[in-house]
Design a protein around this nucleic acid. Structure first.
Length: 93
DNA sequence: ATTATGACCGAAG
DNA sequence: GCTTCGGCCATAA
């Protein structure tokens, strides 16, 4: 799964749900988020590009605000703690 | 083995 | 909009 997250290009995001599907484990989004949380290999993995299916940024080890800032920095529009246009920035496999 | 927790999701009220 | 609930799975104690 880490490889998948690593593949997310700059300026794009993905959701826990989609990530789960990409792994062939639809409906196991919770496990995905859990894994990211525990591992938090921000050295290798851009966890900040993974958001909730409803567009909310979700959580982040260093705080959701940092996550948002990073995303905005990469060109993803965030408004009110949510991705402005999820469809546009969504990256899926 | 069992229990509890969590960066989740969808449906229902 | 909101909250609650049931269901999912991985990890830790």
């Amino acid at each position: 799964m880490f490889l998948l997250v690593k593949q997310i290009p700059i300026g794009s995001v993905s959701t826990y749900k989609i990530l789960a599907q990409a792994l062939g484990n639809a409906g196991k989004a919770r496990a995905v988020g859990n894994a990211l949380n525990k591992n938090r290999d921000f050295k290798n993995i851009p966890c900040h590009r993974v958001v909730r299916s409803n567009g909310e940024v979700g959580g982040y080890v260093f705080g959701a605000d940092k996550k948002i800032k990073l995303l905005k920095k990469e060109g993803v529009e965030i408004s009110n703690g949510k991705v402005a246009d999820l469809e546009k920035y969504l990256h899926s496999w």
